[in-house]
């Protein structure tokens, strides 16, 4: 087969020129990290990557949470759900997760299975227990409300490093912690956000706050993370998340129970046919 790539350098070049180019390349490569450190995009990515890597190796987890929906008038509605997560097989794909609702009672047992991808759309299936039906659903619905809450689908599913471009903004103290502030720009289609700004603390590399900006570039929502606890000496998990919608005055609080790690979940538990075993 014909080589589709151009020859690395024209054969007419002399050895000396060739050597000079080689030296230039070597020096260039050696200096590149310095250049990257100064590049806010590379630095932003490195901060997000360090945060993402702090979670490497967790394997699988299961956690129950209470979702409290608050209207601007202060009226509240509660839901109880469980999230089971299987860590990604490699850096080229995302985590797999199942969200199972136990309340409100009429949707008890309803489950949502997601196979997160990086830039291509996630795969999602919905399990309807009354009919025992599993239905593959469109994952275009990134910005729609997740079960009537202030969380959008993408707030739950678009947590993969590769789903965003990043930019380092500044360092500042937030909630008493020295934080790096970075901007994230969604690379996937149909996001409801033009960007989000995240505060990641420098010591433990965990997200402490995120501001979300809508398609018009205006501040839409703020998500704060509290009650961080550490599991197995290394995996940090927040136990109180609050999403405030600045444009509607509504908010949603997530209160987490203890995480279970190493619950023995396997790939076979995260295929669409396994949803019928949900209870």
């Amino acid at each position: 087969m014909k080589n589709p790539y151009p020859h690395p350098h024209p054969p007419s070049l002399t050895l000396a020129v060739s050597a000079a180019i080689t030296i230039a390349l070597v020096v260039g490569l050696a200096l590149a990290p310095l250049a990257r450190a100064a590049d806010p995009r590379a630095k932003g990515y490195a901060i997000a990557e360090a945060s993402d890597n702090s979670d490497n190796g967790f394997g699988d987890s299961a956690v129950k949470l209470k979702m409290i929906l608050k209207t601007s008038a202060g009226r509240t509605t509660e839901r109880v759900l469980e999230i089971r997560t299987l860590e990604r097989e490699n850096a080229g794909v995302g985590d797999k997760s199942v969200v199972v609702f136990s309340s409100p009672a009429d949707i008890g047992g309803t489950a949502l299975l997601s196979h997160a991808k990086l830039v291509t759309p996630d795969d999602q299936w919905l399990y309807l227990p009354a009919l025992k039906r599993v239905k593959r659903i469109s994952s275009k619905n990134k910005s729609g409300p997740f079960v009537g809450s202030e969380f959008a689908f993408e707030d739950f599913t678009a947590l993969e490093l590769g789903k965003f471009d990043y930019k380092y903004l500044r360092s500042e103290t937030f909630a008493g912690l020295a934080c790096n502030v970075i901007e994230r720009y969604p690379k996937y289609q149909y996001s409801g956000y033009t960007k989000s700004v995240g505060w990641i603390d420098q010591a433990d590399k965990q997200l402490r706050k995120v501001d979300f900006y809508d398609r018009k570039g205006e501040l839409l929502k703020t998500l704060t993370f509290k009650g961080y606890k550490r599991y197995a000496g290394k995996y940090w998990r927040p136990h109180q998340l609050e999403m405030v919608n600045h444009q509607t005055g509504k908010s949603t609080v997530l209160l987490y129970a203890k995480y279970q790690f190493g619950a023995g979940l396997r790939g076979a538990d995260f295929v669409s046919t396994a949803l019928t075993r949900t209870r």
Binding site: K64, L65, K66, F174, A175, G176, L177, D201, A203, D204, Q206, R208, K226, G227, Y228, K229, R230, G233, H239, Q240, L255, Y256, A257, K258
Partner: peptide
């Protein structure tokens, strides 16, 4: 005491859900 960044201003209730702590002011992270 391995980490001063843990913000422990909360606990778990009888159902096992996190109950936010009373101190939610900035700085509670310590």
């Amino acid at each position: 005491g391995a980490s001063a960044q843990e913000d422990g201003g909360g606990a778990f209730d009888a159902d096992g859900f996190f109950v936010p702590g009373s101190d939610e002011a900035p700085g509670a992270g310590g």
